[in-house]
């Protein structure tokens, strides 16, 4: 079941499946956020989403988060 990153609840783990913007995708790839499941640490109401993987935290603006497709990952 795919959804968008903007709808993921804090605490949930997801795999990022599709990032429409080439540059943003390359930047996420470089940081290792496309390697496997990422944890959604925070989601501000109508605001950015904060992701974490292996101690690296990244904030993404709301519009961007709404354009990124994700699937739920197995809880570790």
């Amino acid at each position: 079941m795919t959804g968008v990153l903007g709808d993921v609840d804090p605490g949930a783990s997801v795999s990022i499946e599709r990032v429409p913007d080439d540059d943003v995708r390359a930047r996420l790839l470089r940081l290792g956020l496309l390697d496997g499941p990422v944890e959604c640490r925070h989601r501000l109401r109508k605001g950015p989403v904060v992701l974490r993987r292996n101690g690296t935290e990244l904030a993404l603006g709301a519009d961007l988060a709404d354009a990124i497709e994700v699937t739920p990952a197995e809880e570790r």
Binding site: V24, P48, V50, G55, L58, A59, L60, G61, D63, L64
Partner: peptide, 9 residues
């Protein structure tokens, strides 16, 4: 440009 920013410790 959208916000894409790393949050250092």
């Amino acid at each position: 440009t959208p916000l894409v920013t790393e949050l250092p410790r």
